[in-house]
Design a protein around this nucleic acid. Sequence first.
DNA 1: CTCATGGTGTTACCGTCGGTAACGTCATGT
DNA 2: ACATGACGTTACCGACGGTAACACCATGAG
Lengths: 201, 201
Amino acid sequence: MDKGDEPLNVKREQLLDAADRVVQREGSAASMNLIAAEAGITKPILYRHFGDKVGLYRALADRHIDELLGRLRAALATRGGLQARTRATVDAYLTAVEQQPQVYRFLVERAAAEEPDVRGQVQGFVRRFGDELAAGIASEPQLQGLEQERALVWAHAIAGMVQATGDWWLDHPEVPRAVVVDQLTALLWQGFTGVPERVQQ
Amino acid sequence: MDKGDEPLNVKREQLLDAADRVVQREGSAASMNLIAAEAGITKPILYRHFGDKVGLYRALADRHIDELLGRLRAALATRGGLQARTRATVDAYLTAVEQQPQVYRFLVERAAAEEPDVRGQVQGFVRRFGDELAAGIASEPQLQGLEQERALVWAHAIAGMVQATGDWWLDHPEVPRAVVVDQLTALLWQGFTGVPERVQQ
DNA sequence: CTCATGGTGTTACCGTCGGTAACGTCATGT
DNA sequence: ACATGACGTTACCGACGGTAACACCATGAG
């Protein structure tokens, strides 16, 4: 569903652009009125295009999610061993956090928490990342021993782990990204087993 | 701070009890009016006691957080090897999720997302769990090789991992808790290293 | 006895939010 | 000429978070 009619979605994209600007500027104070004003119009048009607020938020989130998910997919599909690809994926995620913190916050906080009632519908960004990751893990040659259930649990665990670390890192920018990536990769790779020796950075 | 004046906090606790009931019953639709009505009073009294909405939410969250954090601390301090204690802690967390899903949702969704502006103040539940965990990891005899920075990153990573898995599990109750616990422990313990063999459940 | 204090409670109001009804305008193609 | 439909408006609604103003007791001190 939601294919892409050519003439209709022109305006729609403009509205989303405006909404994006407001979110970027106002953060969580982005209201329908503000967004409409930014777009140079008034509320009802917004509602005709997106139904309601979560509709707009979802549309807004989908754009970024699709792009970020694409980057993560690409990182996961690079050449190299599983460890290197794990590292690349984690790095891609944290790079996104670093480059657009406001957008990132919107994705994990608003788009996820704004719809606690319609649960099961959009699931927020991390959830989609987790589902995606589960498929990746399940089809990983090196991990063929995994039963599907484990792949699911692990995928969502890993997604949440990277997300929480990203959140924490937002408030601790003094730690270089490479360090965080290294430590996450190490944890993912060896867990507590490989603990005493220093990470080979 | 926030010690505990004896006569004053009697009413306060009653109000928090009422708020608790509303949150349990209404979920995210818990408004100040509803809470006041549940307590048999009107809004302004609520505001005199808690300042504003996030004040109430914080007081409400703190009760549960303190209790849950206590249980996690206890699990982390049981006798046994690090692995067994890791498992116990993960299990304690997921047990809380299982027993009071509504409260748990409130802790991670509302209390965390309700105050995106006052960031750095309460930080939500998972954040506090992460900080606590960092101290635990740092003082762990078996993990003395860890630099402090790594302990921090790992702690928040692990906290987020368990939290995200808990969230996911809320929507997949068909998976037994023990299975989730086992798989999380395995991931934490060995990471991808120990992957091909089945978990010894 | 009086009177200030401080906690408990109320009603009535404010601005803002998400959302909608009703009404116009202006191209388009038949 | 006329229906269609997208684009746009103003004006309104109920509910929310939050506050001002006022009232009702107890207490204890002068």
